[in-house]
Design a protein around this nucleic acid. Structure first.
Lengths: 142, 142
DNA sequence: CTATCTAGTTGTATGGTCGAACCATGGCGG
DNA sequence: CCGCCATGGTTCGACCATACAACTAGATAG
């Protein structure tokens, strides 16, 4: 299919430009491991989540998720409570500290993205957003 | 700025959907570490490169790049030769084996992207490509 | 010729992911 | 009511990826 090659290069460049290979800080420059930032985002947005649900959203294995949650707990950002309806499961929830951390992160992210969007020509912004969404959906379907 | 929030979520979802977490295989399912795949791509496209140039393109530290090149060599995919014009530098170049590996990788990538593009509505494809490029440029400028 | 800069290597510390083995609980058919 | 299998989590081992600092060697400016 025409365009394959360009799309490949475009994605590769995007990934590198955005600094997604640096595991120890977010692309927005915050000194928070990127996987923790993802988790923080989900938990801040939707509140308490089953660990398995978190794994599903982050597309991580349960083992990885378990460790990730432990790290959040060690930072004082989250805690585990037994799931009320299932003796096997745990509920992960942000602590007030964690909520704060998520807010700080969101702010930095907003700042970065705002700066980026500033450089995107006015008329293209909607298109960029739309394109990313379409592309993600397409990827999900394959 | 309006759209920040959506863009953040869109990028985060894209990253996860595309499987960029998994360092030990490409998003296209090939059993090749993703950093090696990036390097292979550059070397296959542009031929011999100075190691520093490779580092620049991949946005990696020179130490990381050095190690990466060593890995490629251990696989028999590349070799180092002294730079002709500078006694300090080395030239990295794919071996025939490496060229083959790069070709296999490119094929798998093309297949994957082709499948993805199939799911992108005909009229949107140009827009998606364009959007990614614009976004990458915007990121680069910040 | 010396002081400094640049290219690359190696060591150390983090961070990240998976799959397998293992445990406990839940659900189900007999 | 009791085995049997499925499900949610944890822990372990193997691997991959990155940065920064210290060090070597060649290049370069004065």
């Amino acid at each position: 299919m025409a365009g394959d090659r360009e799309l490949q290069e475009a994605v590769a460049r995007f990934v590198r430009a955005f600094g997604l290979h640096q595991p120890d800080q977010t692309p927005c420059g915050q000194p928070v491991p990127v996987s923790e930032a993802h988790a923080l985002g989900e938990l801040a947005r939707d509140g308490a989540l089953r660990q398995s649900e978190l794994a599903h959203r982050l597309r991580l294995e349960k083992s990885t998720t378990s460790r990730l949650v432990t790290q959040l707990i060690n930072r004082g950002w989250a805690d585990r409570t037994p799931a009320p309806d299932d003796g096997r499961g745990v509920l992960v929830q942000l602590t007030p500290h964690g909520v704060q951390a998520a807010a700080r992160l969101a702010e930095a992210r907003a700042e970065r993205f705002s700066a980026v969007l500033d450089r995107v020509p006015e008329g293209e912004r909607a298109g960029v957003l739309r394109a990313l969404t379409i592309l993600t959906e397409a990827i999900d379907e394959t």
